[in-house]
């Protein structure tokens, strides 16, 4: 039965089972801790090694299945119904907003999404936007969000270079005039000679839910949400 539940992949998870998509990486431990505090019997970080994990009876007596995936992929698992709910950063939702319900700000994993440029050019920002020869180029892991931001904020359609990581390098070597990326302490920007010039979006961890799961598993998800909301309220108040 355990194997069957683990292998029961596509489509909506069964009604007796709660499936959560959780983010690997920087949000993993806090996400697991929040769910534990919310009453789920969720293992700590060591559980991440097993990407799909079935925990019988761990969700208020119901079976719990955890999918540990990249934070940017959490919305896709929830949108497609492979997971009933999940935890991911606001950045992933802003990049791919359709088809999931963003239900709670969990209050942890706070950082900022910013536009950053080389320190020497910070004074010319945003005047430089209009004068960039060959058009403005922006490097980012968030191409849709960056396009939307520059169009809405500056009325511009920059050339957007989509990168997978270490986006700072693109600005440092002049491949792009600016980057759009997450900043927590600013240390990486400083170490690479960059400075944040605009805030695009405040970011924190969000609890997202599949709209169909909300209809069919309302008691279970509702109870979990109530507990997470109480915890999040405490988290926000503590900051």
């Amino acid at each position: 039965m355990v194997a069957a539940a683990l292998n029961g992949g596509g489509g909506q998870a069964g009604e007796a089972l709660l499936t959560l998509a959780l983010p690997k990486g920087r949000l993993a431990e806090e996400a697991a801790a929040a769910l534990r505090a919310g009453g789920l019997d969720v293992p700590g970080e060591e559980g991440e090694q097993e990407l799909v994990r079935l925990l019988p009876g761990s969700a208020f007596g119901r079976d719990l299945r955890l999918l540990w995936v990249r934070p940017a992929d959490v919305p896709a698992y929830v949108r497609e119904g492979a997971a009933d709910a999940g935890v991911t950063g606001k950045d992933a939702l802003a990049e791919e907003p359709q088809g999931v319900l963003e239900r709670l700000d969990l209050g942890f994993g706070r950082c900022r999404m910013v536009v950053a440029v080389r320190r020497a050019e910070a004074e010319r920002w945003p005047a430089r936007l209009a004068g960039e020869a060959g058009g403005l180029s922006v490097a980012t892991k968030y191409p849709r969000l960056a396009r939307r931001y520059f169009l809405e904020r500056h009325g511009l359609r920059p050339r957007v270079l989509e990168l997978r990581g270490s986006v700072e390098v693109a600005a440092t070597v002049g491949m792009a005039a600016a980057i759009v990326d997450l900043v927590q302490t600013g240390a990486t920007l400083r170490a690479n000679g960059l400075v944040a010039v605009e805030e695009v979006l405040p970011v924190s961890a969000r609890w997202i839910v599949n709209p169909v799961s909300l209809r069919w598993k309302r008691p279970l998800l509702g109870e979990l949400e109530r507990r997470l909301a109480a915890l999040a309220a405490g988290e926000v108040a503590a900051r």
């Binding site: 489509g11 909506q12 009604e15 949108r79 119904g81 709209p211 169909v212 209809r215 069919w216």
Partner: peptide
Amino acid sequence: FELTVPAQGQP
């Protein structure tokens, strides 16, 4: 209104 069944992740 929206119409859902448990076997489909979207209405």
